[in-house]
C-alpha cells in the first residue's frame, strides 16, 4: 500500500535554467553515433531532393545506346539496363524511399498513438479487446499482408504509404499504451481526477504531452522500419511500380546484373538503404537515451 520512500531520494532540485528539452539536447549531442546519424539523414535528404537540381538526369526515357555502362566521367555511377544514369536514379529512387518512409512512419505512429492511448486510458474490457486486435495484427507477419494487399490493390506511392501505415501501427500502439498506463496512475493525474478534473483534461493536458518523447522515439524507429519494408516489397516485385522506383526496386532490378559483375547497379542502392536505416535507428537510440524513455533495445 504505502511503501515508504527512503528519505533522501530527493533533496535539492537541479540548477535553475536547465529545461528538460535543453538537457535532452545536451545528452543527445553527446551520443556521437546519433549525431552522425542525423548528419547522414540530412545529407541524404539534400542529395535526393536538391541533388537532381545540381545533377539533372533523364529518368523517364530509356537510352538504349547507353545501357549497362560502367562508372565514367559522364555517368559517375554508370548506367542501368535501360540506360538511366545510376547516380540520378539513386536520387530519384531515394526521394520515393525517404518520402514513403517518413510519411508511413508518421502515419503508423499516429494510428498507434490514438489506439494505444485510448486502450491504455480506458482500461478494463475495452483495453483487453483492443489489445487482442493488436495481438492478431502482430500475428500476421507484416510482409505477408503487404504482399497480399499490394497484389490486390497495385497501389501507387500514396497508396503504399497508406498500406504501410495501416500495417505497422501495432508496435507503437503497444508502446503508447504502456506509457499511458503509467501516466494515468501518476499522482498528478490522480490528484486532477480527485478534485474533479475531466478525463479529457487528463488526456490532453497530462497524458499526451508527457508521452511526446515516447512518440518521437517510436516515430524514428518506425521510419527506419518503413524504409526497410518498402524495400522488401519492391524487391519482391510488388512495391513501387515502374517507371517510378525506390531503392528496393533498384536492388531488385540490379540483382541479376550483380552476378555478371555490374556491381554499380547494386552496391549504391544497397549502401544507401543501409546508411539511411542505420541513421534513423541511431537517431532513435540517441533520442531514447536523451529523453530517458523505454523503447526497443
Amino acid at each position: 500500500m504505502s511503501a515508504v520512500l527512503s528519505p533522501g531520494q530527493i533533496e535539492v532540485g537541479e540548477p535553475a535554467g536547465v529545461t528538460g528539452l535543453r538537457l535532452a539536447v545536451r545528452r543527445f549531442r553527446r551520443n556521437r553515433l546519433a549525431v552522425v546519424g542525423l548528419g547522414v539523414v540530412v545529407l541524404f535528404v539534400l542529395f535526393c531532393f536538391v541533388g537532381p537540381v545540381l545533377y539533372p538526369t533523364d529518368q523517364t526515357h530509356t537510352a538504349l545506346h547507353a545501357v549497362n555502362l560502367p562508372p565514367s566521367a559522364a555517368h559517375l555511377l554508370g548506367t542501368d539496363a535501360v540506360g538511366h544514369d545510376e547516380l540520378g536514379r539513386l536520387m530519384y529512387g531515394g526521394k520515393v524511399s525517404l518520402l514513403v518512409g517518413l510519411a508511413a512512419g508518421a502515419l503508423a505512429t499516429v494510428i498507434g498513438m490514438a489506439w494505444g492511448a485510448v486502450a491504455g486510458y480506458a482500461g478494463g474490457w475495452t483495453d483487453s479487446v483492443m489489445m487482442r486486435v493488436v495481438d492478431a495484427g502482430i500475428a500476421i507477419p507484416a510482409l505477408f499482408v503487404l504482399l497480399v494487399v499490394s497484389a490486390i490493390l497495385s497501389p501507387g506511392i500514396w497508396g503504399m504509404i497508406a498500406i504501410l501505415g495501416c500495417v505497422s501501427w501495432l508496435v507503437p500502439s503497444r508502446l503508447i499504451r504502456a506509457e499511458t498506463l503509467t501516466l494515468k496512475n501518476r499522482d498528478y493525474v490522480l490528484t486532477l481526477r480527485a478534485i474533479g478534473g475531466t478525463h479529457a483534461r487528463a488526456i490532453t493536458r497530462h497524458v499526451l504531452p508527457n508521452s511526446v518523447s515516447t512518440i518521437v522515439v517510436a516515430t524514428t524507429f518506425q521510419i527506419a522500419d518503413a524504409i526497410m519494408l518498402v524495400a522488401y516489397v519492391s524487391y519482391l516485385g510488388l512495391g513501387i511500380r515502374p517507371p517510378a522506383t525506390d531503392w528496393g526496386g533498384m536492388l531488385s532490378a540490379g540483382l541479376t546484373a550483380a552476378y555478371s559483375g555490374r556491381w554499380w547497379l547494386i552496391v549504391p542502392p544497397g549502401v544507401a538503404v543501409i546508411l539511411v536505416v542505420c541513421a534513423f535507428n541511431a537517431i532513435g537510440d540517441g533520442l531514447r537515451d536523451a529523453f530517458d524513455v523505454r523503447g526497443r533495445a
Partner: peptide, 25 residues
C-alpha cells in the same frame, strides 16, 4: 554495436546476395 546496426539495416536479400557472391562464387 556498429556491426549490429549495419546488420539490422541490411535488407536480407542484399546480405544474401553478398553471401552468395563471397562464399559461393
Amino acid at each position: 554495436t556498429t556491426l549490429s546496426f549495419v546488420a539490422y539495416a541490411t535488407p536480407v536479400y542484399f546480405l544474401g546476395l553478398l553471401l552468395v557472391l563471397l562464399f559461393s562464387q
